[in-house]
Design a protein around this nucleic acid. Sequence first.
DNA 1: GTAGTAGCCTAGCCCTCTTAGGCAAGCGAT
DNA 2: ATCGCTTGCCTAAGAGGGCTAGGCTACTAC
Lengths: 189, 189
Amino acid sequence: MARAGVTVERLTLAAAELADEVGVENVTVAALARQFGVKDASLYFHLRNAHELRVRIALLALAELADRVAAALAGRAGKDALVAFANAYRDYAREHPGRYAAMQIDLDPETAAASAGVRHAEMTRAILRGYRLSEPDQTDAVRMMHSTFHGFVSLEKTGGFRHTPRPTDDSWSRTLDALDAVLTNWPSR
Amino acid sequence: MARAGVTVERLTLAAAELADEVGVENVTVAALARQFGVKDASLYFHLRNAHELRVRIALLALAELADRVAAALAGRAGKDALVAFANAYRDYAREHPGRYAAMQIDLDPETAAASAGVRHAEMTRAILRGYRLSEPDQTDAVRMMHSTFHGFVSLEKTGGFRHTPRPTDDSWSRTLDALDAVLTNWPSR
DNA sequence: GTAGTAGCCTAGCCCTCTTAGGCAAGCGAT
DNA sequence: ATCGCTTGCCTAAGAGGGCTAGGCTACTAC
């Protein structure tokens, strides 16, 4: 009997692709086993449980996104960097809806600390260097930025903007203008 | 054999409460049936399938939230209205995490059009009257506002802000200041 | 009081998750 | 080469959940 050559890495990648096709909630151990031509039970040799599978998708996505953002950010500063970050973020979410959704599951603290999520935080703060904000304004601004990006992308995906004809691309670009404006002129207390 | 007195309304309400306790993804037809002292199969007399149950939770939540926001908005204008809206939104999401999560599932267009979601859109636009924005800026601003609210609340819930000690309440209030500032001074093209 | 229907039930199928225990392929050491 | 050990797969089996088909019963309308 030939071995199927299943590894955690191959499983995770296949799971991520499956997630993009059918949604994270439908990424099932059984479906994955079928893809590898293997019985469901066999995957528990590589995986603790179905939840770990989703966590692994999330970690993969966080790392991939961090790489993309880092590449987009290279050599840019100020609004240029803001827009590059934002577009890398949104593009990734649209190309990989399942992976993006997986990113939203909450990781336990130590897993999160070891994830590429920390790189996101660092890069976001790096952007703000162009806007000369000091603490605690910087933290607030980071949170607002992230909220705006995530909120927009998330609402766009679930069709929250569908009821108005205006192209979402236009709203996105104007939202970034507004974000740039408010970061440039961060209101003092 | 006494009848259990199951109705779609009672089912939906129980499901919503269950969702707040254990998460929407764990709202199961079987669990609900147990709560009503009834067999699972019996619920299919009232419900088409498990998905309908979640849709009903979403619609309930949209209506409840719209009521709250409307109450919060009464007699307010400008930044006052903005803050009231935002807090009503965030408070609801925190008190009813399961209902809030249910709100994010995408409804098919006609269901969405018949939902209380349209009231949200109207009220959001009403707030912007205080800021004198005309189309298409108004649409962009509505989208940005909604994105910010949803993004913040969503990230807060999934622990996205945990890695920084700053109280989220403070960041929230400063984010609203920033939003007010940018709406007041919406950047022209 | 009888017909009809609304509200529940049992039986049963399929799918998923997960554990327990077995067998066989390949590797390292003798 | 072969003996054993580990790795990678297997079968078996139980617990749930989703859902359908078909049946019984209590209430309702006439």
